[in-house]
Amino acid sequence: MVKFGIEFVPKEAYWKTVYYAVQSEKRGFDNLWITDHYNNRNVYVTLAATAIYTKKIIFGPGVTNPYLVNPVMTAQSLASLDEMAPGRVVLGMGAGDKTTLASTGIEAKKQLSAVVDAITIFKAMLDGKSVTYEGKVFQVKGTKFNFKPRGQIPVYIGAQGPKMLATAGKIGDGVLINASHPKDIDYAVGQIKMGVNEAGKNLADIDVTAYTSFSVHKKPEKATKAASPVVAFIVAGSPNVILERHGIDLDKANEIRGALKKGDFGGAFGSVSPDMIEAFSIAGTPDVCIQKITRLLKAGITQFVVGSPIGPNARKSIDLISEQVIPHFKE
């Protein structure tokens, strides 16, 4: 049965994010992902508070990156969280956003190697033994915790490109695919399968997760209006090859890029077209969302993540998803 996850960006005071986390647990979500960006509230502070106020939802950073947070510290944070919420913690690890990292003075070099190194170190540290590892990007020498971690924690890899997707299939327990359209999921599953085969595993061993931009409301125009800002940023950040895959007019995409660069958010959001909404979000009434989630399930996902913006009013949209969307797949 498909799992439902939800993503929150900790951009507001911790108690608001935790309010939504508790609401999500009460309303039947299985997984909770908190994004990790230096310019928002700290992900581990938010997750620790979440651990205190929830009792069954599975949660973790979705996703952190090894450049800004050293993998040893990520292992320490997750092992500590696993003591607070035994068996409910997962790791989401990705390469990070190059532009955001650049603003902190970090050059995100050798992204694939960095993620592989980080996960190798993470897993070894959770074994509780002394770790020595010579990776291409990260090295540790005789590194050991002064406490015994509870054990291994499932690792999800945030992936979009073909190599990262295959690597996720090879070494991950799950893959977080930043996509909302079956074309992108189809492509991703194909790449994941290659990694899975190489490792001698089965695709069923991997939690194939669609990390979507989602917006639901009983009035479709309200749902799409709420999705437009997120879609504008996705379009601006997408390589042309992905835009072309969805038949997006590159001139229009450039208009959005230009408007965002100038800080003309109204112009950028207003230039988002229905085909962009269709390609890069799941937005609409509960029935429309059900149809679109069904298409992703057919493409091979095992977890569906409701990502930003969730809807025009997050609290009401979470209730709507719980009442009208999740039951369609779980009852």
Partner: peptide, 14 residues
């Protein structure tokens, strides 16, 4: 909102 009030709010919701 004081930290105590935030905790009270979350505890009630939990």
């Amino acid at each position: 909102l004081t930290s105590g009030m935030a905790q009270c709010f979350l505890l009630q919701w939990q």
